[in-house]
């Protein structure tokens, strides 16, 4: 193991230790565990956006649609089908992912600005469906009347509804699974090909890489991750909201990814942390919390184009 590898291992160990110990250091610092749960879920969503933006090089501005579909998939399953948390997660992931897979076949035919615009258009169509179909989705009021169920391990039941710490560890476990899958994909030859497409699409095409199919697979995978994050988000709030599908929500995810650092794997999690903690703290002081977050975003883009994580890494090196 050389110095670079061991440094990476230490950083990874530090990240996971920090995440596992959250309930023990968050509360003394004045936070609360549910805030950390939100950070994890939104960070997972931002990492899914970054899977596409930072590692395939295509900007989706409609990813909130698949996030919201995941949330509605989980909520509707819990409300109408079965009182099972794992089943709700699977249903949400499948709903978000399959819609992404189907629309992805159309979307990948466009590039650059047009790609972003088509994703906005489809995302908004989903938003208005969720907004108008009141009998199923609850319309503007959102989907209510469901709650996360205890997880049955056969021998014992894990109560994730009333115990914030148990729920945090459950979310952390899910987060670890998805992040592990993401990291595995990015290390695989397929992930390397995605990065090749990001760096030079024309050259990848000349090398014989089926660019469209690769972007479609990356888009679909990213939508599955997004649906999973959305399903978790429905469990966090026991509520699904049509505004979770709106393009401004997609903008928030892109903002988290860019603010944290879109070329790095962990950047979006840092971006989501800054975004969610600032939102939580500032919105208790002023209703115009977004102007402060926006100001920070502009400053980061102007002065640290590689994001906060890129800045931290460079100042260390």
């Amino acid at each position: 193991m050389n110095a670079e590898q061991s440094r990476k291992a230490i950083v990874l160990a530090a990240i996971w230790t920090t995440l596992v110990l959250v309930p023990y250091w968050m509360v003394p610092l004045g936070g609360y565990t549910a805030l950390a749960t939100r950070v994890l879920v939104l960070g997972l969503a931002a990492m899914s956006v970054n899977f596409l933006l930072g590692f395939t090089g295509v900007l989706s501005f409609g990813h909130a649609a698949y996030f919201g579909l995941g949330a509605y998939g989980a909520g509707l399953t819990l409300k109408f089908l079965a009182l099972s948390t794992p089943l709700a997660l699977v249903a949400g992931t499948l709903l978000g992912g399959l819609c992404g897979a189907i629309l992805g076949t159309l979307i990948v035919r466009r590039r650059g600005v047009y790609f972003a615009m088509v994703t906005i258009a489809f995302g908004q169509v989903f938003y208005y469906i969720a907004f108008q179909w009141s009998s199923l989705t609850g319309g503007d009021d959102g989907l209510r009347g469901f709650s996360r169920q205890p997880i049955d391990f056969g021998l014992f039941k894990l109560d994730i509804l009333s115990s914030a710490n148990n729920f945090y560890f459950f979310v952390l476990f899910c987060f670890a699974l998805v992040v592990g899958a993401m990291g595995f994909i990015l290390r695989s030859p397929f992930g390397r090909t995605m990065i090749a497409i990001r760096e030079n699409e024309r050259r990848s095409r000349f090398l014989g890489i089926p660019v469209e199919r690769h972007i479609w697979i990356a888009f679909t995978l990213s939508c599955f991750f997004m649906g999973f994050a959305g399903a978790l988000y429905a469990l966090v709030n026991n509520f699904a909201d049509p505004r979770g599908l709106h393009y401004s929500q997609s903008g928030d995810f892109v903002m988290m990814a860019v603010m944290g650092g879109m070329r790095s794997f962990w950047g979006p999690l840092l971006g989501a942390t800054v975004f969610v903690v600032l939102q939580d703290y500032l919105s208790s002081i002023t209703v115009n919390w977004m102007s402060f977050v926006g100001l920070l975003f502009v400053l980061v883009v102007l002065f640290f184009p590689r994001g906060l994580l890129g800045f931290i890494q460079r100042s260390k090196a």
């Binding site: 159309l106 035919r109 466009r110 088509v118 906005i120 258009a121 908004q124 169509v125 208005y128 469906i129």
Partner: peptide
């Protein structure tokens, strides 16, 4: 929703 459908159709 219809204007977004139009936008998607034109873009595609």
């Amino acid at each position: 929703a219809v204007i977004y459908v139009m936008m998607a159709v034109v873009l595609l």
